[in-house]
Design a protein around this nucleic acid. Structure first.
Length: 526
RNA sequence: GGGCCUGUAGCUUAGUCAGGUAGAGCGACGGGCUUUUAACCCGUCGGCCGCGGGUUCGAAUCCCGUCAGGCCCGCCA
C-alpha cells in the first residue's frame, strides 16, 4: 500500500471527515523543499478521498510570523521591520528595498508559489494566518492560553527542556512601531493585553484583532483546534524530541481540542550539498524545476519516496533516473493483473500504482495518459543531436517509439528537454561533446585497421550526399570496401568524434556537424 | 547531551509497520534486430540483507547490543 493511503486508512479509524494541512512561513523564495511539505499533506488528502472519506486540504500561510532578520536579498532598510509580521511589511523591489506601493512581503513570495502549485495540480484552501487573527478566530485560544499560562510554561519547559524567562507571556503583542520585539506585557484584561514596547511607549492589543500573535509553539497548537486539523505532516525540524510537535500535542489538548497524530517527513537535500537553505544559496525553486520536467514527474519525486526517507534531489542524473522510472512504471502497470505474483511483488505493484495515481495533476486521471513512450535519456540524446524538432520526431518514428505525429506530452517534453540542455542544470555526463580534434585517448584506442577505414572515408567523403540516411549507407559501403568490420568502423568514428567507444547514432551526429567539420577533424587527426 | 533516519548486487534501491524460500532499475557481459553501436528486444553474471547476540519451526523483517554515515534540536519544510 502506498504511504498516503496507509496514512488515510489510519486517519479513517478516528474521523470520517478529515482536514489535512500544511503551513509555511513566506519569509523568502519558496524552494523545492516546500513542495514536499505541500505534497505530503495533499497526497494524504487525496488518499482520504480515494477511500471515501470527506476531506479538505488547507494551506496556512504564516503571514503573521515576524521578519527574523535582514536576509541577504533585502536591503539594510529592512532593519526597522524586524519583529513585524510579514503581512504588514512591504515587499522588496528589485534592489531589495521596501516597495511601498506594492504588495505585502507575504504575498510577494506567496503568489508565484501558488502559481507553481496550480501547475502541479494542488488547489488548497488558502488561509492567511494574519487574517485568522484579524477575524478574532484566535481570541478564544489566546484567552485560554493566557489564563493557563503557567500550565503551558510547564509543558514547554518540561518537554523541550528549555527554560522560559520569568516575564515570558503566551502572547506577543505588536508594539507602537509595528514590531513584536521587546514588547513587555504588563497586564491582561480581556480582550486587551496591555504592554510597554521597546521605545517605552505604552499601549494595548485587542486579542480579537491582528494586534499580536501567539508564540509559535502555541500558535501551532491553537490552529489545530481552530481549523479542526486531523493531519499535518511536519518537517523533521519540528519533529525532533522536545520539538514543537511534542509540545503542541499537550498544549492543543489543554486549549480544548484534539491534536492530529504526529507525522514527520524527512527533508529534501540537494545531492552533495546538504539541506536546502535560501540564505546559503543552496536552493532550487519549483518554477525552475517545472521548466525541466513535467509536473507529474515532480509529484512523482515526492510520491515515490516514503515520508521518513530523505530525498536526494538534483537536476542531473537522479532526476533523469526518476523520470525514466516513471515512464517504465507506466508501461509495467498497464494491467491490473496480479495473479502469479508473490506477496512482495503484489505489494510493490500496488504501491507503484498508488504512487502513479497520486502523481497525476488531476486526481482520478489515468496515469497512462501521461505516457510519453520515450525515455528522458533517449530524448536528451535526440534533442542534442537534432536541432530541429521535426528531425527528432522523424527519428522517433524510425525507431518505432511513435507511430504518427508526436502527442502533446512529447512536444512539451522536448521543449522542456531543450530548456534543460541549454540551462545550467543539465548533467555533465549526459552531454554529448563533439570534438574538433582527436583526443589523446582516442589515438590510443584506434588501431591501424580503423585508421585505414577513416582515411578511405575521408578520401571519398565528397561522394556522399549529406543526409543521415546516405551517411549511414556511406559508412557501410566504406566498411565493405575496406574489408573492415562494421563494428570496428563505428567504434573508430565514435572515438574520433566523441572520444568514447560508443554513442548515439553516429550518422545523425555526422549529419548535424556538417561535412566541413568532418573533413577538418579527420585532416587534423591523421 | 537528547532524538530521528539510513546501512540489502558495482551504483540507486523495493521488501521492514502485519516474520514464511531476497525483487527491480541502471551498469557490466553476451546475443538479436541480417542499415547502426547510449534506440528497441532477449538473456547472463552479480546479494554471509553493516556486525554480534536473542525470540521463533522459520528473521532483511521482531527484541537487545554494537559499528558506520546523514540529519534535526537557535521556530530555515
Amino acid at each position: 500500500m502506498h504511504w498516503a493511503h496507509h496514512a488515510a486508512q489510519k486517519l479513517s479509524e478516528n474521523n470520517a471527515s478529515q482536514v489535512c494541512a500544511s503551513g509555511i512561513t513566506p519569509s523568502g523564495d519558496f524552494h523545492i523543499g516546500h513542495i514536499r511539505e505541500i505534497l505530503t499533506a495533499e497526497m494524504i488528502h487525496r488518499a482520504c478521498l480515494d477511500i471515501g472519506l470527506e476531506s479538505k486540504y488547507i494551506f496556512i500561510v504564516d503571514s503573521m510570523d515576524p521578519l527574523r532578520r535582514v536576509y541577504d536579498f533585502l536591503s539594510p532598510s529592512y532593519e526597522k521591520y524586524i519583529g513585524t509580521p510579514l503581512a504588514f511589511i512591504p515587499a522588496p523591489d528589485k534592489n531589495g528595498d521596501p516597495d511601498k506601493n506594492g504588495k505585502s512581503y507575504a504575498e510577494y513570495f506567496l503568489n508565484p508559489f501558488l502559481e507553481s502549485l496550480k501547475k502541479i495540480g494542488v488547489f488548497p484552501e488558502i488561509v492567511m494566518n494574519h487574517q485568522v487573527y484579524a477575524d478574532g478566530r484566535f481570541a478564544e485560544k489566546i484567552d485560554a492560553a493566557i489564563i493557563q499560562k503557567e500550565h503551558i510554561r510547564e509543558i514547554i519547559e518540561n518537554i523541550s527542556g528549555r527554560e522560559l524567562q520569568d516575564d515570558w507571556f503566551p502572547y506577543s503583542p505588536i508594539g507602537s512601531d509595528g514590531s513584536m520585539d521587546g514588547v513587555k506585557v504588563t497586564r491582561y484584561e480581556k480582550p486587551y493585553v496591555y504592554w510597554t514596547d521597546r521605545l517605552g511607549i505604552e499601549g494595548k492589543s485587542n486579542i480579537m484583532k491582528a494586534e499580536g500573535k501567539l508564540p509559535w509553539r502555541i500558535d501551532w497548537a491553537a490552529r489545530w483546534g481552530i481549523h479542526a486539523i486531523t493531519s499535518e505532516p511536519a518537517g523533521k525540524d519540528h519533529g525532533s524530541a522536545g520539538g514543537s510537535y511534542d509540545t503542541g500535542i499537550p498544549i492543543c489538548k489543554l486549549l480544548g481540542s484534539e491534536p492530529p497524530k504526529k507525522m514527520v517527513y524527512e527533508w529534501i537535500q540537494l545531492k552533495g550539498m546538504g539541506p536546502m537553505s535560501s540564505s546559503k544559496g543552496v536552493t532550487i525553486g519549483p518554477v525552475e524545476a517545472l521548466n525541466l520536467v513535467p509536473p507529474e514527474i515532480l509529484r512523482y519525486v515526492i510520491a515515490r519516496s516514503k515520508v521518513n526517507r530523505h530525498i536526494d534531489f538534483d537536476t542531473g542524473a537522479t532526476l533523469f533516473d526518476t523520470a525514466d522510472e516513471y515512464e517504465r512504471l507506466l508501461s509495467e502497470t498497464t494491467t491490473d493483473e496480479i495473479d502469479g505474483l508473490t506477496r512482495r511483488q503484489k505489494i510493490a505493484k500496488e504501491t507503484n500504482i498508488g504512487a502513479l495515481n497520486l502523481s497525476q495533476i488531476n486526481r482520478g486521471e489515468n496515469p497512462q495518459e501521461s505516457f510519453g513512450g520515450v525515455s528522458f535519456r533517449h530524448l536528451s540524446l535526440l534533442a542534442q543531436i537534432k536541432s530541429k524538432d521535426e528531425d527528432v520526431w522523424k527519428s522517433l518514428k524510425n525507431s518505432g517509439h511513435i507511430d504518427n505525429n508526436p502527442n502533446k506530452i512529447l512536444i512539451e517534453r522536448l521543449e522542456r528537454m531543450r530548456h534543460w540542455i541549454d540551462g545550467p542544470h543539465f548533467p555533465e555526463n549526459s552531454k554529448i561533446v563533439i570534438h574538433k580534434t582527436i583526443t589523446a585517448e582516442a589515438v590510443k584506442n584506434i588501431n591501424s585497421n580503423q585508421i585505414e577505414f577513416i582515411i578511405l572515408f575521408r578520401k571519398k567523403i565528397n561522394d556522399c550526399a549529406w543526409n543521415e540516411k546516405e551517411i549511414g549507407n556511406f559508412i557501410r559501403s566504406i566498411s565493405k570496401e575496406s574489408g573492415i568490420s562494421a563494428k570496428e568502423c563505428y567504434a573508430s568514428l565514435y572515438w574520433l568524434m566523441l572520444g568514447k567507444h560508443n554513442g548515439p547514432r553516429i550518422a545523425s551526429i555526422i549529419s548535424e556537424v556538417g561535412i566541413d567539420h568532418m573533413t577538418s577533424l579527420i585532416d587534423s587527426s591523421f
